[in-house]
Simulated assay, not measured.
Amino acid sequence: MLDKNHRRWKELATGTFSLATDNFGLQMFLTRSISRFSKPQPPGELEKTAAEIHSFFIKYERLLAREISLISK
């Protein structure tokens, strides 16, 4: 699993890294995160959101094994 501070989590949060997934919960979670950054956010919000995404992946690591392998490349 990528480190919590790895740039990939911020890329997922902003939508600059597109992750193809069949997992509906992950799709909804990422869509919410990406839509948050369609308008300017206060300082620190990107880091907070990236940490939330990382935590989501930690919590559901077994269910998201395929997605983890995709983002770790």
Rank of each mutant, 00 (worst) to 15 (best):
F56V: 03
I71C: 05
A20I: 12
S72P: 04
G44W: 04
F57E: 05
A51E: 11
H6V: 02
I71S: 05
R62V: 12
R8I: 15
T31H: 07
L2R: 12
N23S: 07
G25R: 09
L2W: 01
I68Y: 00
L46S: 00
S55V: 06
K4G: 01
R66C: 01
E47Y: 05
F56E: 04
H54F: 12
R66T: 14
P40S: 13
E67C: 07
A51H: 09
T21W: 01
S69L: 12
R62Q: 15
I71P: 03
R7T: 12
F17Q: 08
G44Y: 04
T49L: 02
I71V: 09
A20C: 06
F29T: 02
W9C: 07
N23V: 00
L46F: 04
F17S: 04
S55K: 10
L26G: 03
L46M: 04
F57R: 06
S55N: 14
S72C: 11
F56D: 03
T21H: 02
Y60L: 08
G25I: 07
N23C: 06
P40M: 09
E52T: 04
Q41I: 02
L30E: 00
I34K: 02
Y60W: 08
E52Y: 06
F24S: 12
I58V: 15
K10P: 03
L63N: 14
K48W: 07
K73M: 11
K10F: 06
G25Y: 09
L19H: 06
G15Y: 03
G44F: 03
R36E: 10
I58C: 14
S55Y: 08
D3N: 15
I34S: 00
K59E: 13
F56W: 11
S72K: 11
F57A: 03
R66P: 12
Y60A: 02
K39F: 11
F37W: 00
S38F: 13
A20D: 14
I71T: 02
A51Y: 07
G44T: 04
K73G: 15
D3K: 15
A65R: 15
Q41W: 05
M1Q: 11
I34Q: 10
D3F: 11
P40L: 09
F24E: 14
I34G: 00
W9A: 02
